[in-house]
Design a protein around this nucleic acid. Sequence first.
DNA 1: TTTTTGAATGGACACGTGTCCATTTTTGTT
DNA 2: AACAAAAATGGACACGTGTCCATTCAAAAA
Lengths: 339, 339
Amino acid sequence: MTSILDVAKKAGVSPTTAKRAVNQPHLLTKATLERVQSAIEFLNYEPDRTAGALRRGHSQTIGLMVGNIIEPFFAQLTRTIAKAVHAKGYALIVADNEYDTNIELENLRMFHGQRVSGLIIRSAFGTGNLEYLRRLHQQGTYILEIDHFLPESGFSHIMLDNHGGVETGLRYLHNLGHRKIAALTVFEAHQDERARAYSQIMTDLGLKIPKAYQRSTDLTEEGAYRRTLELLRLPEPPTAIFSMTGNEAAGAFRALKEQQIRIPQDISFLTFDDYSWTSLVEPPLDVITQPIQAMGLRAAELVIGAIERRQLNQTHLERFACRLITRSSCAAPRSHSLH
Amino acid sequence: MTSILDVAKKAGVSPTTAKRAVNQPHLLTKATLERVQSAIEFLNYEPDRTAGALRRGHSQTIGLMVGNIIEPFFAQLTRTIAKAVHAKGYALIVADNEYDTNIELENLRMFHGQRVSGLIIRSAFGTGNLEYLRRLHQQGTYILEIDHFLPESGFSHIMLDNHGGVETGLRYLHNLGHRKIAALTVFEAHQDERARAYSQIMTDLGLKIPKAYQRSTDLTEEGAYRRTLELLRLPEPPTAIFSMTGNEAAGAFRALKEQQIRIPQDISFLTFDDYSWTSLVEPPLDVITQPIQAMGLRAAELVIGAIERRQLNQTHLERFACRLITRSSCAAPRSHSLH
DNA sequence: TTTTTGAATGGACACGTGTCCATTTTTGTT
DNA sequence: AACAAAAATGGACACGTGTCCATTCAAAAA
């Protein structure tokens, strides 16, 4: 493998000068710079970042831990972040935790071993790995939570305005006349912001949430499918279903379709995430869309900014607004329209 | 940052012994091993892979270059490969080339700088980066092409049985009575296997492909949308459209829907890739499904196997079969059913 | 006990870079 | 022409690991 020493020899300069041609070209004479640059080109030299990482103490690498790369939300986020960090000369190492603390821990170990400079994480529910994250941070890794955060963590985070989004959705359904509104989400221990917002806003609207509505999904398509069938079998089924993620929406929609439930005549359906397919199905779905790209760009910017300015302890808390797109999957409930 | 030296000191052994506790534990006495292990735990020691990478000459890292992470095909592939390589102790660095040789080159540079041990690549069309890939290979990076390969490259590859898949699809449509079958794909320079298979099998079936059917998409949803509208405006529009990727299918389906074309009454529609939404739309789509997970697992296995056995020059060429799933988007063409 | 053998442990060095400090060369001033 | 100041270039070392070789130790054979 050719190193900077080969370049230096070829160009007839000292190793230090050759390194400067790469890192601080403004310090060199035009002539010297050109000589070194042509040597670099001739030898196809590419600096060894592993060596640099060793010397510097951290690699020019960002770790990204998402819930599940297959979900378009995370795929889009991954892509945006990858592009942004590449532009700054960083590489992106990805892993997903499958919303499981144990899998997450293993991948955190891997990130640690790679000495990632920064970590963007959509952590699993529960505080199981908080201690490990804290240690990572203490050792110089900037940590940014995204989409979900552990309240006690004290790390920076980038969040959607989940409360606002849920409120927009629920008021929309409420105004249409719905009173029995079920949510597809994770209720356990009030860890999920959307679940919390759902409970609170339903109360604000003077609506009660039956116990039967408060069972959790596991955030998978399959789980939402099963949960939706359960809801439909209830003695008092909901007149509207509000899916808190686009992933769950696919499962729920499949269940509704299989049961030949007419949307919106029999049930209104609303979901977070404007996934491509939501406008292709019949009826096109009403959705609450997130500014994924803006969030990803900001995440990359914050992390790299903090790393380069060596402000590892500066905390940024940001919220991004979401937007309701109405199509044709929500309408007044039948009982209501008879009034 | 705690190093193995700290561990050694804490455990009262030499650095070499401490290293062995990590890498070759069978060489140590049970007592010594335990002493070192508890020191590791106490200090939260995690080996610095950047240092190991420097010494070894390559990092325990695999590069994955896909076309576009957002496409579920690549998302699924990424996830499968990520899991598989993590299990073997490797990290996965991802990048996408957006099917563009220049973007690809930049990311290849990045991979090179990171001294990835292996590279799994869905290369952009064209041989622009072949020379760079060759150099990378020469410097010790194992290279595996996936989903698409450059015939002259000589690298290992994992491919779908594209010819078989296209043949299955075309014969299916032909048997239904279709003669005017258009394909959504990349025709340029016969670089795409599915496009080549389409041309050849149409000829085998005794069918001619009008010039107007031979214009390329750019593999995007938007491009397929526009291309589909063009096809519909033709004086002799096709009676069946065969989309060669699931990504393009979304755009094509949107166009058909907007134009209020009835599927399969007015046009039959068939596509590669059994994406989640294809069974949610009306009508559910007939698809040709790929064994993405099997391909991803095999890719990871091949690359890591070659790295660990130091057989960088061994070439593996593998093909995976695909399968037609019939639902309701294909039927006999109208003119035909009148006969 | 002594010798032999193999198991267990230790020492030393190189990988390629970033960084600090030293030295040389050039430029500007008198 | 002599000097100071600034610009340009060079030297030396450390980062933490993997690997090779050397040494010590314990057990088996004589």
